[in-house]
Design a protein around this nucleic acid. Structure first.
Lengths: 187, 187
DNA sequence: CGCGCGATTGAGTAATTTCAAATCTAGTGG
DNA sequence: CCACTAGATTTGAAATTACTCAATCGCGCG
């Protein structure tokens, strides 16, 4: 698992063995089974997760107990409740396994420690955050410019493997429409 | 204008005079009048803008010539077509003045030069990018959980000054609904 | 076989869009 | 002070889209 993380970081930022040993010491690994929670709404222990293997969903449950999917996270993706993590607040969302999943995670304190001790790692996280902003800008744009059917086909084209690994009802919860509506489309 | 930028950066990252002089040398300032374009769809000269004074909108124009507002940018906000800037592509959006506006901007080359020469500035940009991700996560969440009227009132509550400076039809283009629909709501 | 989960289908209802027309408002020139 | 204009907003009515609720279908698995 740590080798996966190293490969991932070194695509952007070369590391010495010593540097990577230090980074590794600040992450923990954990495996979860399908259906398990990595964290749950209202908890305080916010962490930043790196998905080595498997599939997660980040969900928000509204007052009528409806589940909205803020994002999925597959292999090599980072995921967390950004606000709760970075501002050290209680989480308003939950992170749940769609498949059996192996993750590495870093706590906020360790993250800060890492950035102070090895400042160049901020270059790596900056690049990740930038791409996060790009992806978000695109997703917002697609909700503005496209109708539901177009967004559905775009999603399948963009992430064909995701569409195979996730039930359609979950794709509906991600797109913000009812599963019945999605079911009525003929691609 | 440069003093505004310095205050803004130093809220997160203290700077020596020498460091700030260097930063300043990589930014240019420019003033635009209401209605002018800072950049236009299809251009290549992507820059990252810092708004000192005024108000901008980042728009995408679809195939039917409808204008969608991806985001507004007020005083102390950073704005750009992130994808075009960071990946050095042609812009797919346009940045336009809603009011007379003073900006500072940095080119991609200068941005890279800045990060290489003064790596600690990446800490500043990382924090900005993180907050950008948080804001995007929240906006996506609001489209998933709330109906149009709720999102409209949330927008006004969150940015009361914006709602006064921008015509309602533009708020509609930001929320992704028609101006007629917005007009039918009684707050 | 029968259960459980997911997907589909039908019918009625609600929200939003579209198009067209009317109204409002601030600024300008006579 | 008034008429005029451009931009913004509002209103009405029909058409479209999506939602909700309920029933049904399909399939893999013990």
């Amino acid at each position: 698992m740590f080798e996966t993380l190293r490969n991932h970081i070194e695509k952007i930022l070369p590391l010495t063995d010593q540097e990577f040993t230090f980074i590794s010491s600040l992450f923990d690994s954990k495996s979860y089974k399908k259906g398990q929670f990595l964290f749950q709404e209202g908890e305080n222990l916010s962490r930043h997760y790196f998905v080595c293997k498997g599939l997660l969903k980040l969900i928000y449950t509204d007052s009528e107990a409806r589940e909205h999917i803020v994002s999925f996270a597959m292999e090599d993706w980072w995921e967390s409740d950004f606000e709760a993590f970075y501002l050290q607040q209680k989480t308003s969302m939950s992170l749940i396994c769609i498949e059996n999943t192996d993750v590495l995670y870093i706590t906020y304190d360790n993250f800060k420690h890492l950035c102070r001790t090895l400042p160049k790692i901020e270059h790596f996280f900056l690049e990740k955050a930038f791409f996060g902003c790009i992806a978000a800008q695109k997703r917002i744009l697609s909700t503005l410019t496209s109708n539901t059917k177009e967004r559905y086909t775009q999603l399948i084209l963009r992430y064909p493997t995701l569409a195979q690994r996730v039930p359609k009802s979950q794709l509906a919860a991600y797109l913000g429409v009812s599963r019945e509506t999605l079911s009525r489309f003929t691609l």
